[in-house]
């Protein structure tokens, strides 16, 4: 059972990248009755939360959804769900996004969706997917058009959310530093990607393989300097 589930997931693992707006399930060759039934139920679930005027699940709908799922709306799993759906705008789920996401998760009810969460978490944590999920999380937070950076407090929340599980101690220090420093008010994508690279590649807490002569973003040089100072 678990093996087949993993296979299904991998079929859709590239889905968020394509940002497709086409409903996947219905467009496939020879949709069986079961499938169309499933889509019906998925759509039904969508309209339970969607705002009738905009035709989307808006922040309010998401909050209701979260309460039914019994997770806080700031939980990492909601972000993962958004990623799985290929959701483009923070706080809004379109029908297409909803369909592709839930179909991929094989969930057409709240209880199934709840059950799908542990697997979703596992999926996201796989390095190949995480490389995609991590910048997605950043882009997801760019709430306005042409916005290229996120504010420090948002960045801290997001770090907690996406890296907190894997790199607890690094994230704690980094968040402390980001709140302490006053030079930067916002974080750009380059710095954001730098954080992940730092967590993945630098020995912590010894930092012995960190070399500020390499092409690290300056903010990380400062962070490391701060860490080293505070240590001694």
């Amino acid at each position: 059972m678990a093996g087949s589930a993993a296979k299904r997931k991998s079929d859709f693992s590239t889905l968020p990248k394509t940002k497709s707006r086409k409903p996947r399930g219905s467009g496939g060759p020879g949709p069986t009755r079961g499938v169309s039934k499933e889509i019906e139920r998925i759509d039904h679930l969508f309209y339970t939360y969607a705002d009738s005027s905009s035709g989307m699940i808006d922040p309010e709908g998401i909050e209701t959804l979260c309460s039914h799922l019994e997770v806080p709306h700031t939980d990492a799993r909601i972000l993962m769900l958004a990623w799985k759906m290929g959701c483009e705008k923070q706080g809004y789920f379109t029908l297409d996004e909803w369909r592709s996401g839930l179909k991929a998760l094989r969930a057409d009810s709240i209880s199934k969706l709840k059950k799908a969460f542990p697997e979703l978490v596992q999926e996201v944590t796989r390095p190949s997917n995480f490389q995609d999920f991590y910048p997605y999380a950043f882009r997801y937070c760019l709430t306005e058009d042409k916005k290229k950076c996120i504010e420090i407090p948002v960045a801290c929340e997001l770090l907690n959310l996406v890296l907190g599980l894997q790199f607890r101690s690094q994230v704690d220090k980094l968040v402390n530093y980001l709140k302490y420093q006053s030079e930067y008010k916002v974080i750009n994508m380059d710095q954001w990607m730098g954080f992940l690279r730092f967590c993945n590649e630098i020995n912590f807490p010894s930092l012995d393989n960190y070399d500020s002569d390499l092409a690290w973003p300056l903010i990380l040089d400062n962070f490391v300097e701060w860490l080293r100072e505070n240590k001694s």
Binding site: N188, M189, D190, R197, L214, A215, W216, D221
Partner: peptide, 23 residues
């Protein structure tokens, strides 16, 4: 370094995916 970062942000440069030293 700051100028390099600004140029990265404006997409004149990018960091090498594999080698941390390179732009």
């Amino acid at each position: 370094k700051k100028r390099i970062e600004s140029l990265i942000e404006r997409e004149f440069l990018e960091r090498d995916k594999a080698d941390r030293k390179l732009y």
